[in-house]
């Protein structure tokens, strides 16, 4: 007698390569942690409180919403924790607790779950939440006002706001190496560009994010800033300054590369990154906000469905 089950053949993928969403979330958190820890070192325990509250409230909002909506509980895949961490890293360390919880509600429920949860969000959830908070509580999200009571061993003004108000004269004494190593004010996890660069390169090497988006994003920022700088060097800062201040590195490696809201093909990725980077500098130089990079990322997310139409044709297809 032959065993019938031995002869049963299933369909093609007989095995899975084992990649999981949880692994990707873990890699992103690992890559973001050095910059976040530097922020805690720089801003003290209030920064740790903001980060912890952001992560935990994001996870709890996700849990609550999946319960209420009777969806499968998706907290375990870690994407809510990633969003909470990235959101918290962009906040000033002195943000009160209610604003943090409101922000994670906006990120998890409004920007993600009502569109269908993981993989279905049209915009980067963390960027949406930061954008709404910047419009709603302008004073609390302003880095100069928020950090006015902190004491630092370096000039404690938000560099981009200083340039916007007083021109490049205000930042003449700011050394680029200081900006790179995080001797500047800003969001908790966005000040240490060295750590962000290391984390971003790690993510690229682990194939969690594609190199095209950060590279074209940074190129878009640099080229646009260079054009402004050539036209009026007294009003507009140099490209290196724009690269090393505000959310630039954070946006390039962690915001613009979000899975669901970024394109997947080579040319669309280049266009997406360059457009978002260019708009970021436009907002900084001639827009209302000193740091409007999250809005630039949102505009990039907005054109992503159009960019996805640029794709290779199937071989031999007629018509």
């Amino acid at each position: 007698m032959t065993d019938r089950t031995k002869l049963a053949v299933s369909f093609a993928p007989f095995w899975h390569n084992g990649s999981r969403v949880t692994d990707r979330s873990r890699q992103i958190i690992l890559a973001a942690l050095p910059a976040a820890l530097f922020g805690v070192y720089r801003f003290g325990f209030s920064a740790l409180g903001v980060l912890a509250l952001a992560v935990s409230s994001a996870v709890l909002w996700e849990l609550a919403f999946t319960r209420v909506a009777k969806r499968p509980v998706s907290v375990g895949d870690g994407t809510a924790a990633v969003i909470g961490l990235l959101f918290g890293m962009m906040l000033p360390a002195s943000l009160p607790w209610w604003a943090v919880i409101t922000g994670t509600f906006l990120a998890i429920v409004v920007a993600r779950q009502i569109y269908g949860g993981i993989g279905a969000n049209p915009f980067n959830p963390a960027a949406v939440a930061i954008a709404i908070l910047m419009l709603a509580w302008k004073q609390r999200m302003d880095f100069d006002t928020a950090l006015v009571n902190s004491v630092f061993d370096f000039p404690a003004f938000f560099p981009l706001a200083a340039v916007k108000a007083f021109g490049t004269e205000a930042i003449r004494d700011v050394a680029l190496i200081d900006l790179f190593l995080g001797r500047q004010t800003g969001g908790i996890g966005t000040i240490c560009n060295a750590a962000l660069l290391a984390g971003g390169i790690y993510l690229v090497l682990r194939r969690v994010i594609r190199w095209e988006i950060p590279v074209s994003f940074l190129a878009g920022v640099a080229l646009t800033a260079a054009a402004f700088h050539v036209v009026d060097p007294l009003r507009y800062a140099s490209p290196a300054f724009h690269l090393l201040t505000g959310f630039t590195f954070f946006g390039a490696f962690f915001l613009a590369t979000e899975d669901a809201s970024s394109p997947v093909n080579f040319i669309p990725m280049l266009i997406y990154g360059a457009v978002a980077g260019a708009i970021a500098v436009f907002i900084r130089n001639i827009g209302v906000f000193a740091e409007g990079l999250v809005f630039a990322v949102l505009v990039g997310n907005l054109i992503q469905p159009l960019l996805d139409k640029i794709r290779p044709q199937a071989l031999g297809k007629v018509g």
Binding site: F11, A12, P13, F14, W15, H16, N17, S19, R20, V21, R24, I118, G119, A314, L315, K317
Partner: peptide
């Protein structure tokens, strides 16, 4: 979206991080 270009090799389901049954959808 080139449904009939698929030769049902199953690679997409093999690498899918979200474990979507893509090949089953296609068939």
């Amino acid at each position: 979206y080139d449904l009939h270009s698929c030769i049902e090799c199953g690679l997409c389901s093999y690498v899918c991080v979200s474990k979507i049954p893509i090949l089953q959808y296609i068939m």
